[in-house]
Write a protein that binds this DNA or RNA. Structure first.
Lengths: 164, 164
DNA sequence: CGGCTGACTTTGCTGTGTCATAGCCAGGGC
DNA sequence: GCCCTGGCTATGACACAGCAAAGTCAGCCG
């Protein structure tokens, strides 16, 4: 039955970076917390409030994010207050910028209808809005109908790839 | 109107395209099925086998994907077989290309260690590997430290706070 | 006709994410 | 010393994704 390892390669699946990523940021609230962090939210209470999940869920997600290295707890102290901790994105967390922008672009294009996005990303130098695009290492822009998916196992299932 | 640091706007949250997107593709298996579809997988059994979730979950996810317009059932018939249906990505589903590639890039950079990715996307014309980059509408490449996040909570003129 | 195959559906159970509510704790202010 | 606030932690309930195993169903094939 599952003898046909050519057909099914659990190892390959486990190695798939998309699946690996989704193991870390695969839940709705996790990604929304990261998105909030991109907008400068840093404190526990603000996350809980703005993300719209309860405090228990917020604490659990933030703990996960710190554990997986996307955010870190940084001490801060306001005058007349005791020392507390705020949550900041690490470089690893910042690396999700493209993914979050891509999801935003997709949602804006296909889901939001005529509604106006309540926030946007701007290029710091020129102020113009930022989007994701696909580009090949040779420097060409790659449109949706200009790519080929290549499985690097010996399985030529996918795109009409005659690998020659 | 409100102090931004203490601002809770469920409307704005609901309008957030990232959250909207995650309502549709917010589960691990949904996005992995879409990823599989990018590699040419079309038949029910192949999805179940390659995605690594059971048939019941596969059927449920595919049904969701068809319902939300990311995939469509297309009849096909192999010689000596009866008519069946295969699942194809619609334009809406294809639009997730950037998001999936961004997640792949991130997973590859931060999670996969030294392991080799079992598949890749190539530019059809030149064969070079494809990645996502951020670009502003003025045409500049935008690096991770060159963007500004702007909350548009003040509801710009195009969208008064009432949905009339 | 009856078996086989691909594509599901159904059933029963588990695990996880979330909620609501309540409680705990550290430390500055009174 | 006690209260108050921000930042969690604890508890019980619930919804839903997931699994495994079994059942359904259409139609080609022998």
């Amino acid at each position: 039955m599952e003898d046909q390892s050519k057909h099914r390669d659990p190892e390959a699946m486990a190695h798939c970076p998309v699946a690996l990523s989704l193991d870390v940021v695969g839940t709705r609230s996790t990604l929304i917390i990261v998105r909030e962090a991109f907008f400068g939210t840093r404190r526990f209470g603000d996350f809980a409030e703005r993300v719209g999940i309860g405090e228990a869920a917020t604490a659990a997600r933030l703990k996960d994010l710190v554990a997986s290295g996307l955010m870190e707890k940084v001490p801060y102290q306001e005058p007349g207050q005791r020392k507390r901790y705020e949550y900041q994105l690490t470089d690893k967390g910042l690396g999700l910028f493209h993914a979050i922008m891509s999801l935003r672009d997709w949602g804006e294009t296909w889901l939001s209808g005529s509604r106006v996005t309540p926030w946007r990303f701007a290029h710091r130098d020129c102020g113009a809005e930022v989007h994701t695009v696909a580009r090949c290492t040779a420097g060409h822009d790659v449109h949706l109908d200009e790519f080929t998916a290549v499985r690097q196992t010996e399985r030529p299932t996918a795109a009409p790839d005659t690998h020659n």
